[in-house]
Design a protein around this nucleic acid. Structure first.
Lengths: 170, 170
DNA sequence: GTCCTTTGGTTCGGTGAACAGACCAAATCA
DNA sequence: TGATTTGGTCTGTTCACCGAACCAAAGGAC
């Protein structure tokens, strides 16, 4: 893939990361996976991405072993253990983007279950740890805009819930 | 910019981040800034990016106030205070990419000056803090490939040095 | 089983972005 | 003052993303 995915002469961890997850839409697909989205049509409804691109991205993620296709018949897509390591990246990226564009009004907040709130460096303000994704609950933040979308996935995401737990969209 | 830069209906911090730094080459330009690169020709020599794209990206970063153009005559590009907040993002992304592609053989290591080494979650193994970029030293890691490039910037980066300190390439 | 709907895609033509390489003007050096 | 370096811009080509149409398999109703 000569254009857009490759940084062939960059001997650098960031370039390697971007070759895996740097294409348009890929990080948003993985974000949705952490939030509990698992089905092709749910990604499509939530992301407004063309089906062709979504299909290509899911195939690539499965091939890179960041996602696993589960079930016969209509598949579900599930994060692999390797992909769970991406959680700190997505968290600090979300915190930075929220703080950079609307300081003090995050669109979504993250909480260490039973403990405290996660700050911009990804640490819990209760215990100073950096919890795994499975121990994190997410809630809509004060900067969320509930008028922007009204698909089933967006509605399900307006309820506080734990990461990695499949969303009920039907 | 209709294609490639915008996620207009994604109410999410990650989408906001990607609108600022998600285009091809942008994060690598910012990485180079943290490593001490400051001039157009040095970015170009180190990145193998076309001059037109480099020019467009630098303009965009200046307009977003992530870079500042300094000096009359041939300018230098300097990170703003806002951009320094990106350091945790770049660090965890680099650590993830290195670990994901060549576990145990990072291309570059980062160290809390006078204390310890930074791990995959960005914490110093000496004091458990997450140091600011200015307190970090970087060195080529065991996975670095010194045969891949031989430009002046790459050579200067083979010497351990503190982040944010301008590289001497002449 | 047979029909019908939903799901999970693929295919297609059009548009915009990235590429390599030529070109150019201002800044700097000898 | 002339030559060289620097910091770009311009151009034609290639490639990726887009929306829309199309299609086949899965699942549900009967």
């Amino acid at each position: 893939m000569p254009l857009g995915t490759d940084y062939p002469r960059q001997d650098c961890g960031i370039a390697r990361s971007l070759e895996l997850v740097g294409e348009r839409w890929t990080l948003l697909i993985l974000r949705d996976c952490f939030l509990g989205v698992r089905r092709f049509s749910d990604f499509q409804a939530h992301l407004d991405v063309s089906r062709a691109v979504l299909s290509a991205r899911l195939d690539a993620l499965v091939e890179q072993r960041l996602l696993r296709r589960v079930g016969d018949g209509h598949p579900e897509y599930e994060l692999t253990a390797d992909a769970l390591d991406l959680w700190p990246v997505l968290l600090v990226l979300a915190q930075w983007g929220d703080h950079r564009t609307t300081p003090g009004l995050p669109r979504r907040t993250f909480h260490h279950v039973g403990c405290g709130t996660l700050g911009r460096d990804g640490r819990c303000d209760g215990c100073d740890a950096s919890p795994r994704a499975g121990d994190v609950e997410t809630r809509p933040g004060p900067g969320a805009d509930p008028t922007l979308r009204d698909d089933l996935v967006s509605r399900a995401l307006r309820v506080p819930h734990r990461l990695l737990v499949p969303l009920a969209t039907r």
